[in-house]
Design a protein around this nucleic acid. Structure first.
Lengths: 342, 342
DNA sequence: CACGCGATGTACATCGATGTAAATAGCCAG
DNA sequence: CTGGCTATTTACATCGATGTACATCGCGTG
């Protein structure tokens, strides 16, 4: 009795009412007399009672927690995004469980089906390796919202930017600067769906619109989207001979790594090679040279994803289920030194 | 029956044993005959049973989750550290709840007492604003390990590097390069305990050892440890007139921001001003110039913190409690271009 | 052959909060 | 003063897993 946290039963005894009445007060049930409500509230304060989440969770099946599943937190774009999601969730009194998968498919699926799936009411995921089937299998009820990447084959709630348009604009900007041989670092030609492919498409569209030929040799794939990969890609291009006069890097890490590698080889940015990135991470605002980049509205992405998810969570297994939604948030091209004066 | 997830009861019926026996199999209780074990296992597989964590949590009071409380995920040091903690926790089959506090005291205390405290078995926290009393109040049983900052007035499990020595070495390196007027960006003279103060101490010790005077004007406080703050501090120094010939910045963001601001004012790093940072974030390896910095062994920090925490979690409220531990992990000075050729 | 002991297995209560159904109180019309 | 409402409150079952206490089984021993 003296030991341990007070339970609802203790509060009920202290206030001289039933457990259910205490529960009603806690849950803002409306038909409770003012007198009772006050008495219960006093008991709660006196005993320092707080609800036990395990009990509530067991009873109602909801936890008030959502999972955010991203490839890597050391990728600034994701940690910045995570910060926004956490902030948005807090406003709606939800707690965020952050997961990193390293882009590995098994980790991504296990976030949807595995251990943690039991603990959360829903999942916001930025999949890298997930296959359409993995999502379908997760259909057993866990609400899922895709953030960034979109699985083209199946209808799913999805939030992202218009990647094709964004890449087109960025490429157009480089073209407007007089650049003609523009490489796409991180680009992909193969038919897998994904951000990288959409951006590569936008790049091609821009070339086409300018009446320029598309050279597959200028599409440089990377293993991952880190500084090192950008540095390697740029090094490979430089060592290959004919260095492009501009790089469209599919994220800022690649761009900054590339600039560094070019610098080491004596190529100046933007004089010799202009460079444009994606994501607008903070590092690019202070790098030398500062980085031109496509800035997605990260706060809006986070808000939209959370809104969609909570909508689905609260609609439970209602019939009919709310229709699948596709939200496209704004982006803008931020021009800085790395493409300046072209 | 057909609907919903199978419960332990369903498995028991399917296998023709009692619920407890199923529970025993799940929990690897040793005195279960092979035959029974097999039968139960088959039932589990057949029904696709998975334990319900809410039930288990309610019954045993443990969740298998720990909280990692950091000021900001957009600070690369913390997101890199978080990545390590998550990885280490996964190995020990624990899940990490990441919290950012923005360095606000109310958020930090609420991580220790608030809503989430109910959900986790323990907390690893990098406090910025927490007061000794806040920790004492948290003594109601939630295991807490301090990471980085140390509350000097109270004994607590703590993991960190030797900040004084690290700053001393970094300063000595700058002195060895011939620099004499070295500013400390992010330094503090006031008596608050904390990493910044310890590092300022190390800086003074190095000056003293070199027989140089200490000039309080060279200690430049900052509001936060972001790029922008570093840029502002450097700008202030530059505009003030007598620019120092070296900066010891107390983290890499400050350092990179400072380099940028100096660059904008025409000062070259390292030729005009050498710059050294702390943390060894990835951005500093690829910046131009690349950044000399003090590299803490982040993986070791994460492992040690987790180990201490889980030790305390599993010892529960055993008497006697395990003694408070202080773990100091290795760091090393990584010399790069920003202090090169001095 | 009864006894005792360890190995197995079972029934039931329990963790804490809340949904359900039903009891009670309060109030008005007739 | 009673039937008929509604507003309030209550007792009890329930969510799913596991600890407790006890029953049973098998087998070696005296």
């Amino acid at each position: 009795m003296a030991a341990g946290r007070p339970r609802i039963k203790d509060v009920a005894e202290y206030a001289g009412v039933s457990q259910k009445t205490v529960s009603n007060v806690i849950n803002q049930y409306e038909h409770v007399s003012d007198k009772t409500r006050r008495a219960v509230q006093e008991a709660i304060d006196a005993l320092g009672y707080r609800v036990n989440l395990a009990g509530r969770h067991l009873r109602q099946g909801r936890t008030g927690m959502i999972a955010l599943v991203v490839p890597e937190l050391d990728v600034a774009y994701f940690s910045e995004l995570a910060a926004h999601v956490v902030a948005a969730a807090e406003q709606r009194s939800h707690t965020v469980l952050i997961h990193q998968t390293g882009g590995r498919r098994d980790r991504e699926t296990s976030a949807l089906h595995g251990f943690d799936a039991d603990f959360v009411d829903g999942v916001i995921i930025s999949p890298l390796a997930l296959l359409p089937d993995d999502l379908r299998a997760a259909d057993r009820g866990l609400p899922v919202v895709l953030l960034g990447e979109r699985d083209t084959t199946e209808a799913r709630d999805h939030v992202g930017i218009d990647n094709v348009a964004a890449a087109r604009e960025a490429t157009a900007h480089l073209l407007a600067g007089g650049h003609r041989r523009i490489a796409v670092v991180g680009g992909r030609l193969d038919p897998a769906s994904g951000t990288d492919r959409l951006r590569t498409q936008g790049y091609r569209q821009a070339l086409e619109a300018a009446g320029l030929p598309f050279d597959p040799d200028l599409v440089v794939p990377v293993d991952a989207f880190h500084w090192l990969d950008g540095a390697r890609a740029a090094a490979a291009l430089a060592d290959r001979g004919a260095v492009p006069d501009a790089l469209l890097c599919l994220n800022d890490h690649l761009a900054l790594g590339a600039i560094r590698a070019l610098h080491e080889r004596g190529f100046k940015t933007p004089d010799d090679v202009a460079v444009c990135g994606f994501d607008d991470i903070e590092a690019g605002r202070f790098s030398i040279p500062s980085l031109t980049t496509v800035a997605p509205d990260k706060a809006a992405l986070a808000r939209a994803a959370l809104e969609l998810l909570l909508m689905r969570v609260s609609s439970g297994s209602a019939v009919p289920l709310p229709p699948v939604e596709e939200r496209c948030v704004a982006h803008r091209l931020v021009v800085r030194e790395s493409t300046a004066g072209c």
